[in-house]
Design a binder for these strands. Structure first.
Lengths: 224, 224
DNA sequence: ACAAAAGTGTTGCGCTTACACCCATGG
DNA sequence: CCATGGGTGTAAGCGCAACACTTTTGT
């Protein structure tokens, strides 16, 4: 079966920037390419949009297929369509970003099969002198940079930060998420005031002990 | 000549939300459809993306073809791709918004030929009891609403407001642009303080008389 | 008892808001 | 001289940033 059109049509894909927090860093999920072009480079997960699914459905499906998670925070980022961005032909790619919390992240690690790997966005993993992140295929570096920029803005205005944490968390953990994403230290007292003032999290009657110090109170996010 | 693919491909278009200020209102350029579907409805101008041009080039080309202007403010908005949005088949549309200043706007009025017309976004033009804006084709109402939302945000953070005015303008004119877009009154003194503090406009040695009152000082925008 | 992270208030400053009168002009 | 929009300053309140010590636990 094949399809014929009077005019050439670009292929349309979705590409995913999937973030999580681990090892005290922001991580992005990348897939090692086994084929040309950009063989052996790392790339964002993505794939073609089916003819009868919405863009968001396509993104959610990719998320399901490639990393086995559903029902995560997903947001359209931007559409990249420069003619030369894929050497195989005209490909227009609608980029999404997704946030995966620390619990689900283990699921991803499990389905690790298909050459998918979490890469540090800011830290360099190994003490080599190389740049922070492996070279990315296509224009995926640009997409990633844009996603980081968007995440940084968004975290200041909204409550997306909570999407990166498990259901129960401490305020110190939440603060650390902000510090990692913004890449700058945050004042503890001001941070707590700001967060509590938003009225979006609930104090639980529960604490967590974690070493030789005072246990931390747990909170949870109040989804509307 | 025709093109054959193994899998069905969506068509890709750009749609334009072209804004200007006129008659003390925000106006959007709409085109009357002469063909089905949505015959005789109003629609956003738009068209297919050529196989060898970037999305932004396609948007700029449409702007040139449909309304005859070049070199205007143009920004990607969002990509709409629900399967049923065009009854003729799968069409993915990358929406852009453009801002046209009062000078260029006359050019548009001139090339008025092709059923293009400026429509008030907020006011109702005629004293009928109809809603503010004619019914739009496809999901164009949704696109327009999103564009208005984005413009409102953007005007508070950036200097896009200047794109809607001619090179020389008075502070009252600029203030009126803000009031029209935000649909709320703005305090004159605070507005002037804020705008001047941004250091983005230059006071000219020129004034403009306009009726039986003190002439207004002219300013111009300092593009970086 | 000590090390280590949790938790907690106050102050100063800058930005935003509210607000009212004189100025320059045309008719 | 009067109507019309142009132009100007000040005071109060609010949100944000800076800053240090006590509490609770494990070892």
């Amino acid at each position: 079966m094949s399809y014929t059109y009077d005019y050439p049509r670009p292929a349309v894909t979705v590409d995913l920037v999937i973030f999580t927090i681990a090892d005290d860093d922001l991580k992005v999920l990348l897939i090692r390419r086994r084929l040309e072009p950009y063989k052996d480079c790392w790339a964002l997960p993505g794939g073609f949009v089916d003819i009868d699914e919405s863009l968001e459905q396509a993104a959610a499906r990719e998320l399901q297929e490639e990393v086995g998670v559903t029902n995560v925070y997903l947001e359209q980022l931007y559409t990249f369509g420069a003619p030369g961005r894929d050497p195989r032909g005209r490909v227009i790619s609608v980029a999404y970003f997704a946030l995966i919390d620390a619990e689900r992240q283990r699921i991803v690690a499990a389905s690790d099969a298909a050459d998918a790997e979490w890469h540090s966005v800011f830290k360099q993993t190994k003490p080599t002198k190389q740049g922070k992140l492996a070279k990315l295929a296509f224009d995926h570096k640009q997409i990633l940079d844009y996603a980081v920029w968007r995440l940084r803005n968004k975290i200041e205005w909204t409550t997306v930060g909570y999407e990166l944490l498990p259901k129960k968390f401490t305020l110190s953990e939440l603060q650390r998420v902000y510090e990692i994403i913004l890449q700058k230290p945050v004042d503890k007292r001001n941070f707590r005031k700001k967060i509590l003032a938003q009225g979006q999290i609930v104090e639980l009657n529960e604490t967590r002990s974690d070493g030789a110090h005072r246990p931390a109170r747990l909170y949870s996010f109040r989804k509307k």
